[in-house]
Nucleic acid binder design. Structure first.
Lengths: 230, 230
DNA sequence: GTCCAGAGGATTATGCAGATTTTCTCAAAA
DNA sequence: TTTTGAGAAAATCTGCATAATCCTCTGGAC
């Protein structure tokens, strides 16, 4: 009856839910995360919450203030710029390596994940979640073959943080999304082009996302989430 | 009386100590980390230990087995190879950026950290700790200017893991260390040479460390710490 | 009238001691 | 050899006690 996977512990359940909620912007940037209310929301004791928050603080998804609790990190244009830049550095490197290690099963997984992505439209509200997951999986598939679990994990961490920025900005009607064709072009470059071409497309892809969110900052729409706006 | 920094919490104290002990190899790779004994050792309740372990598992310095506790990660030659390779990728990138952003204070910090490193000799037992710290600070100083806290943190994580491998191998008499001159040459290349030269030296530096530990694996001296040797 | 310092209570984070699962051990049965 | 199950050991969870922080209000100086 027990599956191959490990049985989950209460604290891990809270960790996963809290993690998802923060990334999806259910908690606003800068918001204080109080233990007792959270314990109530998730229906567990305060220790489980505390442990979940501790884990999340290690990946910078929550900030820890000794003796003063935890909070969702604020957002800032400078941080967003550095986040995207770092992501480009790391994913570019990972993609180069993945393409150098090219295997059939890697290529097939990419084709498959793009196909799955094609099932969703990012501009339909009820497909939003499915599109986000499929989108993430597509980008993961591109790098999967890079040969370094470390690098993959770092890319994942950056992607989570980037996703949070995108979700928060969506709250302000930023619905511009890359169409499907952009991902198709990226896949073609990865499968049939040079590493240089593919990396250029990947970088351009992320820069477009960067600029979408940047515009909202410049319009002052995200000010309430920045440190000063507290 | 209170310092500028935040007052530390018990759980954080345990986290820091445990972290240092794991990196320094006080706990052997593969060893199970039981809550109660640790609580006894550090003189705290089980919750503080649990929280510390949770944090450490997020940075992969301990492994978490749901419902079955925690353990120090085993070591393996393949993991060591990937660790060093990833470190070279990331530090090379960081060094390039740092050199491109060159500032006076950055250069001065490097000179200073090398001078401080020169005070210690890695082959004297009583200076070992001081040398390790100074060594780490020197390498950190090289990258400090790279412009991405994310990248710096990732490099730091990898450095911690690499340090653990080195400490464990030291337990088997692997005393070969890079002399001071190697670091001096690295600094000169960083300050006066091209990025290409500096990165080549940096990579060579880490490859030497890689090979020292690799040799011990090949002699079978580290077998007892690998997964199978459990 | 405004500003600041400080006291005291309210709120919140932190820590602890068991109670409650879950896993592990190991010997006997199939 | 494989299975089963009781008892021991260990991890996990809860509820409360303690300690730190935050907030409000008072009183006094200017």
């Amino acid at each position: 009856m027990a599956k191959a996977g490990e049985k989950t512990t209460l604290s891990t359940t809270v960790y996963q839910k809290l993690r998802g909620d923060i990334i999806k912007g259910e908690f606003r940037p800068g918001e204080k995360l109080r233990i007792e209310p959270l314990a109530g929301i998730y229906g567990v004791g305060s220790n489980a919450v505390r442990e979940a928050l501790s884990r999340l603080s290690a990946e910078r998804l929550v900030e820890r203030y000794e003796q003063r609790g935890f909070a969702v990190p604020a957002i800032a244009l400078d941080d967003w710029r550095i986040l995207v830049r770092t992501r480009c550095w790391l994913e570019t490197k990972a993609l180069e390596e993945a393409m150098a290690n090219r295997t059939e099963s890697w290529e097939e997984a990419i084709v498959l994940s793009l196909h799955r992505l094609s099932r969703f439209r990012s501009d339909k509200a009820d497909e939003r979640g499915g599109w986000e997951d499929a989108h993430r999986n597509f980008h993961r598939a591109l790098l999967a073959n890079c040969g370094s679990p470390w690098l993959l994990e770092f890319c994942d961490v950056l992607a989570d943080h980037a996703t949070r920025y995108v979700f928060v900005s969506h709250a302000y009607g930023n619905r511009k999304r890359q169409g499907f064709s952009e991902h198709e072009a990226l896949m073609k470059a990865v499968l049939h082009g040079t590493a240089e071409q593919a990396c250029a497309l990947l970088t351009a892809h992320y820069m477009k996302t960067f600029e979408n969110v940047e515009a909202l900052f410049k319009e002052g729409l995200l000010e309430e989430f920045s440190d000063s706006g507290n």
